[in-house]
Computed example of a mutant assay.
Amino acid sequence: MTSQANAIRPQATPGIWSGTFALASRELVRFFRQRTRVIGAIGQPIIFWVLFGAGLRGSFQSPEWASNLEQPLTYQEYFFPGIAVLIVMFTAIFSTISIIEDRREGFLQGVLAAPVPRSVIVLGKVLGGTVLAVIQAGLFLMVGPLLSYVGLSPGLQIEVGLLQGIFAVIFLTLIAVELTSLGFLIAWPMNSTQGFHAIMSIFLMPMWLLSGAFFPGGGSGWLSWIIRLNPLTYGVAGLRRLLYSGDLPVTDSLPSLPVCVLVTAVFGLACFAISAALVSRPTSHNVT
């Protein structure tokens, strides 16, 4: 019996990765077959960027960390990293809400009964959502500066070089893992898409709004503390540091890049670990 068990164990790892890639590829195929998801995940943030940039351009005041720049920071430039993170968040929401649909259709029960660890579900969903998020946000980083040449985003002076782009994509991957794991953690105990949208409205969107993506979060008071405690603040700040060309004069109001990487990685790992623990439970109690 022992020899037979030992002979079976080496086959477990290939089963984990094959199951993970199968679930991830399923997410990719499902996404590209649904054109409305592609349009919604990319089109809506770009519309936000163009419209809010045009409407708030005159009333925008540069934050403290950008006060020493040779050329004043425009709102389009300030909002640019926040929109990239918004695309990642929308993709994470759309990719993890499929968990509820898979449970209703019976697909999730079939995966749970398969002879692979239950953590494969988390790995597959997070990998698929991360790839989709990075593809879409990466496209925006390339297309966004081109909009300034046609007059849709006047004042945008961001020019992303090759090395900057590589580091920005790597950091976007870290943010995508963080937000997709968080979305999985929220969606797993639910059996209602309406409940998921409610959580998104009262938790995920305010989380993005209070990350410094939409407006500067300096100053003092209770709002500034919420912004500092928000883990997504460090994702937006880290991406902001990587995208802005040249030297960026900063103060303590903008977190350093090592701190941004550390906070984003720790929070993403924590969400992933909790999600894996929930999935590995023998029984789960679903709530609306």
Rank of each mutant, 00 (worst) to 15 (best):
G106N: 04
L204N: 01
G106T: 05
Y149S: 02
L23W: 04
A12M: 05
T91F: 09
G55K: 08
L257T: 09
F107C: 03
R103G: 09
Q136L: 11
M207P: 05
S253C: 09
T180V: 15
I83S: 01
L174H: 05
I226C: 08
T233C: 00
G40R: 12
R103Y: 06
R118Q: 01
L182G: 07
I135A: 03
S280K: 02
F79Q: 00
T96K: 06
G129C: 02
T264C: 01
N230G: 05
P231D: 00
A133H: 06
R26Y: 13
F215V: 15
L112F: 07
F215D: 15
A168M: 03
I100Q: 06
D252Y: 13
G195I: 04
T283Q: 09
T20V: 08
T264L: 00
M190N: 08
A7I: 14
F167T: 15
P216F: 10
P258L: 00
S59E: 14
L204V: 05
M142H: 10
L146P: 07
L204D: 01
S119Y: 11
A92L: 00
I97Y: 04
S181H: 08
T233D: 06
Y244A: 07
P14V: 12
G212C: 14
S256N: 12
L127M: 02
S284C: 12
A168K: 05
L146M: 12
F79D: 02
P216K: 06
V38E: 01
E77D: 07
A198V: 11
L123G: 00
E101S: 14
A114N: 12
A168L: 05
T130A: 04
I83A: 12
F60L: 02
G183A: 11
L51E: 04
I135S: 12
